[in-house]
Computed example of a mutant assay.
Amino acid sequence: MDPEPTPGARVFPPHPIRDVRATYARQTSCPSDFAQVVVDFEPWEEGVAFEAADSASVRGWPAEEIASFHEGFIEGVREELAGLVGREPATAVAVAVVLRRIKVHNADSHRGAFRAAGRVAVRNALVQAYGPPPGPGRRRGSAER
């Protein structure tokens, strides 16, 4: 389904962006954080739709805990996409997010780590869609003054 863009705004995603990999790992102390995901971003209706594929589960883990990881992930995705509003260039969000796979660590995976991985996944998808964000302007060194 083609999204209805806001006049003058680009639409995210402009095309299907598949197999976006995102890892959030912070191993500095206890507790540590670990979450790894593979996700697709598909053009859809305005807003954010979410689906977790059957393959986005982990054998031997309680369904409630995996559901919590999924909820954390989409929470992070929504937060990161909300940050596009009011930024230049204007970007309308019309996306179906399909969580394909997750990888967990038996001690370091938790909802918060998956929330952070959701944010990373959106950043990775934005780079694939539009290229890297512009860096800061070139600074003049003392020799150039």
Rank of each mutant, 00 (worst) to 15 (best):
K103E: 01
A116Y: 08
T23P: 00
A92E: 12
V104E: 02
P7I: 04
A129T: 01
S32M: 10
Y130G: 00
G137E: 10
S68A: 14
T23G: 00
H70F: 06
A49T: 14
V38Q: 07
E79G: 06
P13H: 09
T6C: 11
I66V: 13
T28S: 13
A92K: 04
L126F: 08
P136N: 03
D40S: 11
G60Q: 04
E65H: 10
W44C: 06
E45I: 05
R140N: 14
V93F: 11
C30M: 13
E65C: 05
I66H: 07
R78S: 08
R119L: 01
P62F: 12
A56V: 11
R111S: 12
D19K: 14
A107C: 08
E45V: 12
E64D: 14
E45R: 15
D2N: 07
N106T: 11
V95F: 09
F114W: 04
E79H: 14
L99F: 00
V85N: 10
R140I: 13
D108M: 05
R140Q: 15
G135I: 02
A67H: 07
I102D: 00
F50G: 00
R21F: 09
E46A: 13
G135E: 09
A25G: 10
D108G: 03
M1C: 14
R59F: 09
C30W: 15
V120S: 06
G141T: 07
W44I: 00
E80K: 15
F41H: 06
G141W: 09
H70R: 13
G83K: 05
R145H: 14
S55M: 03
R78Q: 11
A143N: 05
R140F: 15
S29A: 12
R138L: 04
E79Q: 14
E80C: 10
A117N: 02
P132F: 12
K103C: 01
E42Y: 08
I74S: 02
V127F: 10
A22F: 12
R111A: 11
V48L: 05
R101A: 05
E64A: 12
V77W: 07
H110T: 04
D2L: 06
E45M: 13
A35D: 04
A9P: 14
G141L: 06
P14R: 01
R145Q: 10
S68H: 11
W44L: 02
A113Y: 04
